[in-house]
Design a protein around this nucleic acid. Structure first.
Lengths: 190, 190
DNA sequence: ATGTCGTTCCCGAACGATCGGTACACAAGA
DNA sequence: TCTTGTGTACCGATCGTTCGGGAACGACAT
C-alpha cells in the first residue's frame, strides 16, 4: 500500500536505544533523537503516537526481548553451567559494546522518567536476577546462596558499567565478565 | 556586615546535592533546584555566578571533601584494616542514606553534563579507587591484586546503588557494605 | 492507460510551557 | 551609605507536542 519507511523499525529502535542509554530519559531530547535518527520531530510522533514515553517504552521492550534472546537464552542451553556463563559473558560484552555503552536500566531509572518507564527497568532487572539465580542454583547453591550470587553478579555488571563511564576505563568491566562463571559456580571455600 | 542568607552555604549545598544526585545534571532544572532550596533563580545566580554548572561543581567539590573526611579518612586510622573498613562501611551507609540515595558519580557522569563536571566525577572516583587499593595493599595483597580488589569493591558499591534504585531493593546494598572488609582483606583461597 | 482513492510516511510551521540566564529595584544589617 | 542577599519581571532558546498538507504507493474503477 504505502510509502516505505526511511528507517525500518529495527534500525530506528537501535538509534533510539543509543540516545536513551547515553543521555537518560530527560537528557534524550527530541532534538537529539531527531538528529540521531534523521527523522524530524513530527515524524517521530507518527511512529510513536504516545510521544517520548512511547519511544522509551519501545526501546525498553526491544532491549528486554533482545536481552532474553541473546543473553538469558544461552543460560538455558546444554553444557556445564560455566560453559553457558561464558557464552553469556560474550553476549553481554556485545550488548554493552565492551563497556563503552551505559545500561538502560541505569539511565532510565532516574525519577525524571515516567513511572511506566521505570517499571519496565525494574521488570528487566528482575528477570536478569532470576535467570542468574537459577543457574547458580543449578550449579549447586542453595536458593538463598544462589540469589546472593546472582545479585552479586548483577551488581558487578552494573557497577562496572558505571565505572567504565565515569573513569573511561573498560578494563574492570572486561574483568567482571571474565570472572562471571567463577562468581556463579565456584563454591565459597575455594 | 550584610543581610543574612536565608540558607547558609552548608544547608544550601546539601539541598543541591539531593537534587543533583536524584535527577542528574540535565534533570536538575533550575525550577526543581529553586523548589528544593526555597531560593528564587536569581538568588541562586547570586550564590553561583557561573549558573548551573557552578552549582554542580560546588556540589561535587563538597561531596569530594566530605567523602575524604567521612569515608576515606577512617581508612588511614589505626587498628586492623578490617576494623577500619567496617568504619568506612558505616560512613558509606550514611553517605548513601542506606541505599535510598543515588551516587553523584553515576548521575552526573552522563554526556549531558559539562566536561568540567564529568572531570570531577572521574577525579573523585579515582581517589576512592586509590584509597581502597592502598588499604588492600596494606592487608597483604600485591599492588596488582590490591588494585583489583579495590576496583571490585568500588564496582560493588556503585552497582548496588543502581540495583537499589531500579529494583527498590536495598538489601543487596546493605550486604555489599557488610562484605566490604572481607572483600578487601581475605585472601582468595579462603 | 488513466484517474481517483485510501493509506502510509514524512516534514514545515507553529503551539504553550519551560529551559537557563539576566537587569534592576528593594530590604536588611554594617 | 555601602554591601550583600532576595524578589519581580523578563529575555531568547529549547522543551514536548500538534496541525495540516505534500509525496509515494497499491487498489480499483473507468
Amino acid at each position: 500500500m504505502p510509502a516505505a519507511p526511511r528507517l525500518d523499525d529495527g534500525e530506528l529502535l537501535a538509534r533510539l536505544l543509543e540516545v536513551f542509554r547515553a543521555h537518560g530519559y530527560e537528557g534524550a531530547s527530541l532534538t537529539r533523537i531527531s538528529a540521531a535518527t534523521g527523522l524530524q520531530r513530527p515524524s517521530l510522533y507518527h511512529r510513536f503516537p504516545g510521544g517520548k514515553q512511547d519511544m522509551a517504552v519501545a526501546v525498553l521492550d526491544a532491549a528486554h526481548a533482545r536481552f532474553g534472546q541473546q543473553v538469558l537464552a544461552p543460560l538455558s542451553g546444554k553444557g556445564a553451567p560455566s560453559t553457558r556463563l561464558r557464552a553469556m559473558a560474550t553476549a553481554l560484552a556485545e550488548f554493552y559494546a565492551d563497556g563503552k555503552a551505559s545500561c538502560l536500566l541505569d539511565t532510565l531509572s532516574l525519577p525524571g522518567a515516567p513511572a511506566e518507564v521505570r517499571r519496565r527497568t525494574k521488570r528487566t532487572l528482575g528477570v536478569l536476577r532470576s535467570g542468574l539465580a537459577e543457574i547458580a542454583s543449578e550449579a549447586g547453591f542453595t536458593p538463598a546462596a544462589a540469589r546472593h550470587r546472582a545479585d552479586d553478579a548483577v551488581i558487578a555488571i552494573q557497577g562496572a558499567l558505571v565505572v567504565a563511564r565515569v573513569a573511561g576505563d573498560r578494563e574492570p568491566f572486561q574483568r567482571v565478565l571474565k570472572d562471571l562463571p567463577r562468581r556463579l559456580t565456584t563454591p565459597p571455600g575455594r
